[in-house]
Simulated assay, not measured.
Amino acid sequence: MNYRNYPMVSRVVFGRGSFDQLSDIIEPQRLNTKAPFIYLVDDVFKGNVWLTGRVPLAYNDKMLYISAQEEPKTSQVDDLVESIILNHSERPSGIIGIGGGTLLDLAKAVAIMLTNPGEAKDYQGWDLVKNPAIYHVGVPTISGTGAEVSRTTVLTGPDKKLGINSDYTPFDQVILDPELTKDVPKDQWFYTGMDCFIHCVESLNGTYLNAFSQSYGEKAFELCEDIFLNGDLSIEDAQDKLMMASWHGGMSIAYSQVGIAHAMSYGLSYVLGTKHGIGNCIVFDHLEEFYPEGVALFKKMKKKHHIKLPQGLCLNLEDSELDLMITIALSLEPLWENALGKRWKTIITREKLKSLYQKM
């Protein structure tokens, strides 16, 4: 039996206000005064001095604001890497991603592509990265995706949506400061929190489940129930707990895998550009057949928080678009195998997927 030797984030700091320690944490990693730290920051923080005023810029350090309106693309990673190389005489001391899953995934991918030849699309898959990434730090400002802890960076490429899954992907340092999530809009908070909840349901009901992933998954599941169904939590408590649920949910799938909702939402995202969190919710809402208890709980949470999901996304799609959606979803074989076992192809046909998509 060949067990996975899984890389984890080597350093993590947790606590309200811990963002202020960023300078002390990264300064020892500075290679020299000409080798900058590059900050990739979600552009929702443009003009938000409460956050950006605390970014410890020195020497040639640069802050690049990036929109998270669209899912991260391989071409976007290539453009960022090229711009960093052209504008700096030395390789950066490190890349720091500040934002949600999109920014964290971009930071991981840029750190990898600064030391590996070719284009980002060449590395979409499992264990294709040969050279260690440069030092990279993740600072989540929203909780749920698990991007801060995972060994993948999910990217939409020219012909597929697939992560750069490698031992060099995880962050060298993560700063978990729940205070940074205080301005997250209600809907966004719910969709991203549900990404975490769905991670847990898919991991805990999967054929790849083992004691390692189960221990993390159960903890994250319990935290999600507390956050989304218990009305007694203070705002601070809920923020702290969701940040830990995100971490545990990410760890749960690290040693197992996600399932049907993620596979199908990749199809939605590739063809329609649907954001990951809301895409998972739209799909999961229709998966009672596969995850009856999880979907029942999800519907309860949705009702409690007055969340209305978009309807009719796939109603007027061309056959060619539906076909592409189905092909993208089916290409994620490990997810289907985790969900339904080795004989999943006898259960999930193109027709079955088409009828599911047409309900969304």
Rank of each mutant, 00 (worst) to 15 (best):
Y3S: 09
P7W: 09
V9F: 05
S10T: 04
V13L: 14
F14H: 11
F14D: 08
D20W: 08
S23L: 10
I25F: 10
L31S: 04
V41H: 00
D42L: 12
K46S: 09
G47A: 14
G47W: 15
G53T: 04
A58Y: 09
D61F: 06
Y65N: 07
E70N: 06
K73A: 15
S75E: 14
Q76I: 14
V77S: 04
D79T: 14
E82C: 05
I85M: 09
G99K: 00
L103C: 03
D105V: 00
L106M: 10
L106C: 09
T115R: 09
G118C: 12
A120W: 02
Q124G: 00
D127E: 14
A133V: 01
V139A: 02
V139I: 14
G146H: 02
V149E: 05
T153R: 00
T156C: 09
T156I: 12
D159H: 10
D159Y: 10
T169D: 03
T169F: 02
F171C: 12
E179G: 00
K182Y: 07
D183Y: 09
F190G: 00
F197Y: 15
Y208E: 14
F212D: 12
E222L: 10
E222A: 08
L223H: 11
F228W: 13
L229S: 11
N230A: 08
Q239C: 07
L242E: 10
S256T: 03
S265T: 11
G273T: 08
H276M: 04
H276E: 04
C281M: 13
L287S: 01
F290H: 09
L297S: 03
F298E: 02
M301H: 13
K303C: 13
K303W: 14
H305P: 14
C314F: 09
N316I: 01
N316E: 08
L322G: 01
D323I: 03
M325P: 00
S331M: 07
P334N: 01
L335C: 11
L335V: 09
K342F: 06
K342A: 08
R350W: 07
E351I: 02
K352I: 04
M360L: 15
